[in-house]
């Protein structure tokens, strides 16, 4: 990460309606705001089986060779009028596992940088050695919607980096943290990849019976495959199913529940149970002390650690700002 002697505060000095604030209001938990979380219909089933729990054979072995994750962190560093400005570090890394060790990312499998995210209307010039991300802010936007747009723009940058890194992957089995639709759009047919979606912001079934089947899954059980349709937010269509990793007795119904995405390919359908076995094998070791350890597979946590280790510290951000 470049560190310029010319601070951001000096760069922005004199610009009308722009003020720089101390980055104490760090806002790394800005989530992606979605608006399509309520399904009208049940998703289309692609596996010729009744919608019930399917036990998965466990072998204790896993064939996944590579792991992809993205990370982002942002700091509220100023305002242009009412609109917030952020310094955002987004990154993506694809790590290989060799002899049970997840190796550090090689340069072509890592993308990450610090960018200044500003409202388009502020006409702010890019600082030296730093890219600018302009976000359209409407006149009618409220403070909340302004923040939503900024957060979405930052998440989009991270996804773009994930796609950038993943599209050059060819050999082996790739496990991706999140959906695979955007990556599939950029990769040729036949690349072997599996996505693990830990959050359940979107429901794919309206039927209470199917929802009950999903929530009642026992450890090592999955649902039949269904089609996650293509859309702008998630990219190309993919086969999907739910899999329970850990027993949820006495816990949240979503405890240990993940949704898996596979390329919409017939031979993937034939391998689905085998892939489930790999995923179950990846439960060891647990991702503790991560709070999401019931759904976070350990190699993915390691990728996240590598990415977070490359993020600037709060002190570095203060130095860049000149505060």
């Amino acid at each position: 990460m470049p560190v310029s002697l010319f601070t951001l505060r000096e760069h922005l000095a004199g610009m009308p309606d722009v003020r720089v604030v101390a980055p104490a209001q760090r806002d790394e938990d800005l989530g992606q705001f979605t608006s399509d979380s309520d399904p009208a219909l049940d998703a289309e089933m692609v596996e010729d089986k009744p919608f019930s729990a399917i036990p998965v054979p466990t072998t204790g072995a896993s064939e996944f060779t590579h792991f992809l994750d993205g990370a982002q962190r942002s700091w509220l560093v100023g305002f242009a009028g009412m609109a917030p400005m952020y310094l955002a570090h987004t990154s993506a890394g694809l790590l290989e596992r060799l002899e049970r060790n997840v190796m550090p990312p090689i340069p072509q499998f890592y993308s990450g940088d610090l960018e200044l995210v500003v409202p388009e209307s502020a006409n702010i010039a890019a600082p030296p050695d730093m890219a600018l991300v302009s976000v359209g802010i409407g006149l009618t936007d409220t403070e909340l919607t302004m923040r939503q747009r900024m957060a979405n723009a930052i998440s989009a940058r991270r996804e773009a980096r994930e796609t950038q890194v993943a599209r050059i992957f060819r050999d082996g089995w790739l496990l991706i943290d999140g959906g695979i639709g955007k990556v599939l759009e950029q990769t040729p047919h036949g690349v072997q990849m599996v996505g693990v979606v830990k959050s359940h912001q979107r429901q794919y079934f309206a039927s209470q019976a199917r929802i009950r089947v999903i929530l009642d899954l026992k450890p090592g059980e999955r649902t039949p495959l269904f089609l996650r349709e293509r859309n702008q937010l998630q990219g190309k269509e993919a086969y999907s199913f739910y899999l329970r990793l850990f027993d949820s007795d006495g816990k949240s119904p979503l405890y240990g529940l993940i949704r898996i995405e596979l390329p919409a390919d017939s031979h993937m359908m034939e391998q689905v149970d085998e892939i489930c076995g790999w995923l179950l094998a990846e439960r060891d070791p647990l991702s503790l002390p991560d709070a999401r350890f019931d759904r976070m597979l350990y190699p993915i946590r390691l990728v996240e650690k590598h990415l977070k280790a490359r993020q600037p510290s709060d002190s570095a951000i203060r130095a860049i700002l000149g505060i």
């Binding site: 596992r97 049970r100 060891d284 070791p285 190699p299």
Partner: peptide, 15 residues
């Protein structure tokens, strides 16, 4: 993480 089983060898070793 090991479920109290010292003998198992998970697919990934902790760095």
């Amino acid at each position: 993480s090991m479920g109290g089983r010292a003998g198992i060898e998970p697919p990934t070793v902790r760095p």
